[in-house]
Design a protein around this nucleic acid. Structure first.
Length: 102
DNA sequence: TTAGTGACCGACT
DNA sequence: CAGTCGGCCACTA
């Protein structure tokens, strides 16, 4: 991963509007990197603690948070999304409703 | 250099 | 719906 690819991924995530979510795969595509879904996760994992990036708006293609439900990270992400008005149904976000489209 | 590993995905039981 | 499975590709030991 070079700097430019990382930057393009960050730029896409930065533009996800409040109250919406995107998926790892979609973020990769928008960044011009189809097939790099796993790397979106890799970039987010190595995000600085003080980052202002809306990382919580990135979930997996099944509409679920990609952290085990019993982790603090899961609770943190879910709390942030709930705070933005998104409704969970059976631990899932209805992509039908909240997926970011143009 | 190689093998194992992911905040993943889509197709297919 | 819920699992499996193979593919994906940079990173790491």
């Amino acid at each position: 991963m070079n700097e430019i690819t990382t930057q393009s991924i960050l730029m896409v995530i930065r533009d996800i509007p409040e109250g919406f979510v995107s998926t790892y795969g979609d973020v990769a595509k928008r960044a011009g990197l189809p097939g790099y879904a796993r790397h979106v996760g890799y970039v987010l994992k190595n995000l600085p603690e003080n980052s202002q990036l809306p990382w919580h708006r990135v979930i997996n293609s099944q509409g679920k948070i990609s952290f085990p439900t019993d982790t603090v990270q899961y609770r943190e992400q879910r709390q942030r999304l709930t705070a933005e008005g998104l409704i969970f149904t059976n631990n899932r976000i209805p992509l039908r409703k909240y997926l970011w489209r143009d």
